[in-house]
Design a protein around this nucleic acid. Structure first.
Length: 423
RNA sequence: GUGGCCGUAGCUCAGUCCGGUUAGAGCGCCGCGUUGUGGUCGCGGAGGUCGCGGGUUCGAUCCCCGUCGGUCACCCCA
């Protein structure tokens, strides 16, 4: 017995009517980016593995256990992107953008990313996000703009403000890290029952101790020295300016000194948007500044940047949970009922002419009864049905029925496009 | 990678605890009630290897073991 293949674990399909919600959310995000002057970029879904290993960081979970890495037939190690920023920055560097254009450049991106994780509510192995990246400026005004745009994008997608939380933190500069790591490790060494995973991270990236959700660790970390208290004066001033600007805009900021993102490239400003009604995975978006990323990727000079990623799937989920999904639009405006099978060719010509005039139009197939075709028209959400039968053809007319009112009239065949355009 | 819960019609589920002749419901789908007319209503119909494999039994959707899949959570992130 032949059997159809199952979908790949964690790789969701989007079919109607759900796909309409997906498009609406992605569209709202991209439109917000466009209004902010961000231009669309596309980069490949795979990169050389080292792009992510270096950018995201060897010590991260993403690189250590979540990447789809494979060798191509030329023996290159390639990886399906687990996130978009690294590839976009790499593309900008490949094109010599730091030396060629007026800065900052503003990029927007939409597409799928891939991480090998156990799926759960709001988390899939193949997921879709929209990113914006502003490259080539370390102006705190830019930080504020980016954070603000993310908020507006989520609002435009339909999430009510009261369902959203915005968490903000600063991670300082890379140069601030070694001294702080010493302070933090000294503190952690005073704790005698550290969980093994935290002990392991102490060497590679002690900041990740803040990530641990072990009950014991929440007590421990409550008293831990905070990075925000050990950053340079310029980073502090930068953060203060960002906060000042965002508060002036009335954004409901939550200061979270323990917000440590799981990607190593973040510096200074980091933030996360959380939505209600999502289950355990409640972040619908996040981002931050990554002033050291270009250099990690081998660029010889400083090339700062900042951006966010918003989860499309997760936002659809949040909208579903809060019952604020917009109703899907009708599939077509006009439906042509073919009252006799031999008129199918004539019907196709009519449909084609209507489409040419910008009217979304479908027609009946399979020689089904007029009654059955009307049902299809109704389900398609058509406002009007055009009946094409032997009688109409003989007299050079069309019968047009308004499905909402039930009114029916005849029009001349030659007037079809003019009569059927519009409401 | 670890753990809880769950796999019965296209979908949502009942039945399984106390194994027993043709496995049910609602929705959806198809047709009929109009000889060319939808949404309501009525009637009829199609559709199921009860996830898969093995075991116990006279007999398994039901009990046992294994396996695969789904789901939620941990870890972590969008």
């Amino acid at each position: 017995m032949p059997s159809t293949p199952d979908p790949v674990k964690g790789a969701p399909d989007w079919l109607p009517p759900d796909s309409a919600a997906f498009d609406a959310v992605e569209g709202a995000f991209l439109e917000t980016a466009r209004l902010g002057g961000y231009e669309r970029v596309r980069t490949p879904v795979f990169e050389h593995t080292e792009v992510f290993a270096r950018a995201v960081g060897e010590s991260t979970d993403v690189v250590q256990k979540e990447m789809y890495t494979f060798a191509d037939k030329g023996g290159r190690s390639l990886t399906l992107r687990p996130e978009a920023t690294a590839g976009i920055v790499r593309a900008a560097l490949s094109a010599g953008v730091p030396r060629s254009g007026s800065l900052p450049v503003k990029y927007a991106y939409a597409g799928d990313c891939f991480r090998y994780e156990r799926p759960q509510a709001g988390r899939q192995r193949s997921f879709s996000q929209v990113d914006i990246e502003a490259l080539g400026s370390d102006d705190p005004v830019l930080d504020a703009e980016v954070v603000l745009l993310g908020w507006e994008a989520l609002r435009r997608a339909g999430l009510p403000a009261q369902a959203l939380t915005l968490r903000l933190n600063t991670l300082g500069d890379p140069e601030d890290r070694p001294a702080y790591h010493q302070v933090l490790n000294a503190y952690l060494d005073t704790v005698d029952d550290l969980p093994p995973d935290v002990q392991a991270r102490q060497r590679t990236n002690p900041l990740r101790a803040f990530d641990s959700k072990a009950p014991r660790m929440s007590e421990v970390m409550a008293d831990a020295p905070l990075l925000a208290d050990h950053v340079s004066e310029s980073a502090k001033a930068h953060h203060a300016r960002v906060v000042e600007l965002l508060e002036a805009e009335g954004l409901p900021l939550t200061h979270d000194p323990r917000l440590v993102r799981g990607l190593d490239y973040y510096t200074r400003t980091t933030f996360e948007y959380q939505a209600a009604g999502l289950g355990a995975q409640n972040a619908v978006g996040g981002g931050g500044r990554y002033d050291g990323l270009a250099q990690v990727l081998g660029w010889g000079e400083r090339f700062p940047g900042i951006g966010w990623a918003l989860g499309v799937d997760r936002t659809v989920l949040a909208l579903t949970g809060s019952g604020t999904l917009p109703p899907p639009r009708p599939r077509v405006a006009v439906f042509v009922v073919v009252a006799a099978p031999e008129l199918a060719g004539e019907a196709l010509s009519l449909v084609s002419a209507l489409r040419g005039a910008g009217v979304a139009t479908d027609l009946g197939f399979d020689g089904r009864s007029v009654k059955a075709q009307f049902k299809v028209a109704d389900r398609a959400g058509a406002a009007r049905v055009v009946i094409l039968g032997p009688d109409e053809v003989a007299r050079g007319v069309l019968t047009v029925k308004d499905l909402a009112t039930g009114e029916q009239r005849e029009i001349a065949r030659t007037d079809a496009t003019r009569e059927l355009v519009g409401p």
